[in-house]
């Protein structure tokens, strides 16, 4: 009565990685744009902006990603947009990534010594030029390692979208498991695929971190 687990089943799971990757890429790209806005708002001279960004971060860091997924998913359908799994999954993960990247990048911007901004003010540089040419290039260097580290978290977090029925790696595993009932084999394979994605990224992040440590040690 059960299907047996063969090459076709394995292939089905492995090819589902493309949806995991695509969703991760969309969430990361969206999160990069949103995160930059949040980070700049957090270090803004305008109080209202600072507090708005802080509230956004508090909400998204203080609630489970799964609830955010549910709220966006059901929220969209209640608003009459209809149930679109792609839109719901991408939107929820983008908001999630924006909050986390925003906070990571705020830290990186604030890690640039205050003297850099003071020198910019003293030279008469305006906000845009100060950020673009002086502060952000230095913050970017600091941010690479933690940003890659967050990307690893984000890839793993896409597995939660399986719960609203979005078919990616984890959901593909569930589907195969329902048909074959070989959970150990199936989910070992699923985990292995995540590992193959995430482990090199983690290694890369660590490499970047040590390279950065060397660069700042002089």
């Amino acid at each position: 009565m059960f299907r047996s687990f063969g090459p076709n089943e394995a292939l089905y799971i492995i090819t589902a990685v493309q949806w995991t990757l695509l969703l991760s890429a969309i969430a990361f790209a969206g999160g990069a744009v949103g995160g930059m806005a949040i980070a700049l708002a957090r270090v803004s001279a305008i109080k209202t902006l600072r507090y708005a960004a802080l509230s956004f971060i508090r909400v998204f860091q203080g609630t489970p990603l799964l609830m955010q997924l549910f709220l966006v998913y059901f929220g969209l359908s209640i608003m009459g947009v209809g149930i679109n799994l792609w839109v719901a999954a991408a939107a929820a993960l983008t908001l999630h990534a924006s909050a986390y990247l925003g906070e990571i990048w705020r830290g990186c911007i604030e890690a640039v010594p205050a003297g850099q901004s003071e020198a910019s003010y003293a030279l008469g540089l305006k906000y845009g030029d100060r950020m673009r040419y002086v502060v952000l290039p230095q913050a970017a260097k600091i941010s690479v390692a933690p940003t890659v580290g967050f990307l690893v978290q984000l890839i793993k977090a896409t597995s939660l979208t399986s719960i609203i029925g979005f078919v990616e790696l984890t959901r593909a595993g569930q589907i195969i498991n329902n048909a074959t009932f070989q959970p150990l084999t199936v989910f070992s394979l699923v985990a292995a695929v995540y590992f193959v994605l995430c482990w090199p990224l983690s290694m890369w992040a660590r490499h970047l971190e040590s390279r950065f440590a060397v660069a700042t040690a002089r």
Binding site: P113, G115, Q116, E118, A119, A122, L123, G124, L125, K126, D129, Y133, V134, P137, Q138, K141
Partner: peptide, 26 residues
């Protein structure tokens, strides 16, 4: 113009670029 105790040069730019940024942008 201002000169600081800690120099506050822009570390990611060459000496020449440090000197050229403000005249160009400002």
């Amino acid at each position: 113009g201002m000169v600081f105790q800690q120099f506050n040069l822009f570390p990611h730019m060459t000496v020449l670029e440090n000197c050229m940024l403000a005249p160009i942008k400002v």
